[in-house]
Design a binder for these strands. Structure first.
Length: 601
DNA sequence: CCGTGGACGTA
DNA sequence: CGTACGTCCACGGC
């Protein structure tokens, strides 16, 4: 029904060094540098278009940084990732897919300040003035230095519209029983990419003094110089080494030495991981001191004073780079600790004066998503309950803990041993949902690529390529992956590498099964976040953190109740639109708080 | 100098 | 009860 609505006109927007160019139906105009912001606002108001950009980062960053709202977007890079899987989605990759050119031929951008070149120089421009190389690929500088004239920008805008048409056509065929579903995914993933720019712009509010105090508890006072830092560090180490007379020279940061140290006091372990050492904690003061030391060391090194100084700005906002999807299933990623802040530091995440956080997290999102993806009517029935495991337990004739373990084991586990009997009952009670999980597992084992509910490709098999590294480094230096799973290179070894499915059969099976659930959940989450973003904007609310199933909205105190209501309403409409049904219920736990730590667990 | 593995934080 | 990611550290090969 929403699809019957008249769709927004598509307007391509390309930014260049001197200005911008906008092209769409009845619109074809260069924007000189100083009118880009105002003109964007006018066209947005008058035509309410969907802005087609090579990526939100390339096409919209300056506008978002200025504080402009960018409501409807088609991010060619994000949509490319949905259709083709993986993470690499440079303009060159987008163009190659649109024209059916081999991904392997996409020229890499020149690598700054590195000696070695890898032959890209030989794919010279076919026409010195044109945007393409001799082999028909987009030249690597096409979106950076090349578009120095309005005419060149115009060519790139036209090409963007070409690519959009190709992508829209491809998306129609991805989900045969609902051709519009993948297009909706394209819209919300594009919105997520814009949201990432806003998250980078706004940052997460930090109570700096509280943060200093909390860091001090773990890492000691702030050192005045390097010698002082070394002294404090040695003092922290001595607390542990005092339990090991004669071995005070052990380097606690060297796992091999730590293992030898533990052996000397009779603790014989294969490795020194926390869960391995936990059983010895009560009986051995050295182990207890070591594990406590590790917690402090984590904060001292990763979330210490340096972290505070480098990533929390003068406006007391913690900032890092955000990505709308990772290289595997499609969850959002964030840098600089935004996604892995240790719980003891959470009291430092504090709303500004006169503001509060509306915090909301989705309850039991993955089993509910399983109900959608599998279209299991009996399992969907269970989602009507606030606590999905209660009706499942009733149906299995077991208690709740058993039902929960069985469901989790079915979704993530080895499907053997452990919850045996309950698992067998689960299979009988919900054969449709369990069938989907079994098929996903089999696909993974066989190396067949799979898709999430919304249509994102999860690559398995020889064409899988790892994501580009998150740390900034010269583009194009990404690892060698073959194109689109087309031809088989050397198959992956037995050792897993980032973004690549594991080499073992069972490993790939679990990967595929998990990716469908986790990736589909990520889609719902982003659809929710995009809806929340526009719903709280009139309340001066801003999303300041996305954490897989949790949202933190920063909002003026007197709008908090309205914002909280909007967050819940947004979930209902986003879930309805994403799932295409009312049969599966999604629930959020929403609260209004000043500090993140006030959230229940 | 760079890549790799251990360890651990989050979901 | 498995998957994913980001970060720091030490090591070892180059």
């Amino acid at each position: 029904m929403a699809d019957k609505a008249i769709e927004a006109p598509l307007v391509a927007l390309v930014l260049g060094p001197q200005g911008a160019y906008a092209a769409g139906p009845g619109l074809d105009e260069p924007w000189p540098r100083d009118v880009v912001g105002p003109r964007f606002g006018e066209v947005a108001r008058q035509r309410r278009p969907r802005w087609v950009v090579w990526s939100a980062s390339l096409g919209l960053r300056p506008l978002v940084t200025q504080g402009l709202a960018v409501p409807r977007v088609w991010d060619l890079a994000e949509v490319h990732r949905i259709i083709h899987g993986g993470w690499r989605a440079s303009p060159g990759h987008i163009w190659a897919a649109c024209r059916g050119l081999p991904e392997t031929g996409v020229p890499a951008p020149p690598r700054p300040r590195l000696a070695g070149f890898d032959g890209d120089l030989f794919d010279a421009a076919g026409d010195e003035d044109g945007p393409l190389t001799a082999s028909g690929h987009l030249r690597p500088d096409a979106l950076t230095t090349w578009p120095s004239t309005p005419d060149r920008l115009r060519q790139l805008a036209r090409m963007a519209l070409d690519c959009q048409a190709y992508q829209a056509d491809s998306l129609c065929r991805i989900v045969p029983d609902d051709p519009a579903r993948a297009r909706r995914t394209a819209w919300s993933e594009s919105a997520a990419a814009v949201l990432c720019l806003e998250l980078e712009r706004d940052g997460l509010p930090v109570d700096r003094l509280a943060a200093e105090d909390l860091i001090g508890v773990a890492a000691g006072r702030r050192p005045v110089d390097q010698d002082d830092a070394d002294r404090i560090r040695r003092a922290r180490d001595r607390v542990v080494l005092a339990h090991a007379p004669g071995r005070e020279r052990t380097d606690l940061r060297n796992p091999v030495q730590v293992r030898e140290l533990l052996a000397s006091v009779g603790v014989d372990v294969p490795n020194t991981r926390a869960h391995v050492l936990e059983p010895y904690r009560q009986t051995n003061p050295l182990v207890d001191a070591l594990l406590a030391w590790r917690k402090d060391e984590r904060i001292a090194t990763t979330y210490g004073y340096r972290w505070l100084d480098e990533h929390v700005g003068p406006d007391d906002r913690l900032r890092g780079a955000w990505a709308a999807c990772d290289g595997a299933a499609g969850r959002m990623t964030a840098q600089n600790g935004l996604h892995n802040l240790p719980a003891p530091l959470r009291p430092a995440i504090c709303a500004e004066a006169g503001h509060v956080f509306v915090r909301a997290d989705l309850g039991q999102i993955e089993p509910r998503v399983l109900a959608v993806v599998s279209a299991d009517r009996a399992f969907a029935e269970a989602t009507r309950s606030d606590d999905l495991y209660a009706p499942v337990a009733a149906r299995l004739g077991s208690d709740r803990p058993t039902a929960k373990v069985a469901v989790l084991a079915a979704m993530y586990g080895q499907r053997s041993g452990a919850a045996g009997e309950a698992l067998a009952q689960l299979e009988r009670a919900y054969p449709v949902a369990m069938g989907l999980l079994d098929r996903a597992y089999a696909d993974g084992v066989a190396g067949r690529s799979v898709r999430t509910f919304g249509g994102r490709l999860i690559r398995l098999g020889p064409g899988s390529a790892p994501p580009a590294p998150a740390t900034p480094r010269p583009a194009g230096s990404s690892t060698a992956g073959t194109a689109g799973g087309r031809f088989s290179g050397a198959s992956a070894g037995d050792v897993a590498s980032p973004g690549l499915p594991p080499g073992t059969d069972a490993g790939r099976g679990r990967f595929a099964r998990n990716a469908i659930i986790q990736g589909s959940a990520a889609e719902l989450f982003k659809a929710w976040a995009a809806t929340v973003r526009s719903a709280v904007a009139p309340l001066e609310g801003r999303i300041v953190l996305c954490l897989h199933d949790e949202l933190l909205v920063h909002v003026p105190e007197d709008r908090a109740a309205d914002a909280a209501a909007a967050v819940d309403t947004a979930l209902q409409s986003a879930a309805r639109l994403w799932s295409g049904t009312n049969a599966v219920r999604f629930v959020a736990d929403t609260s209004i708080i000043r500090r993140w730590s006030e959230a229940k667990p």
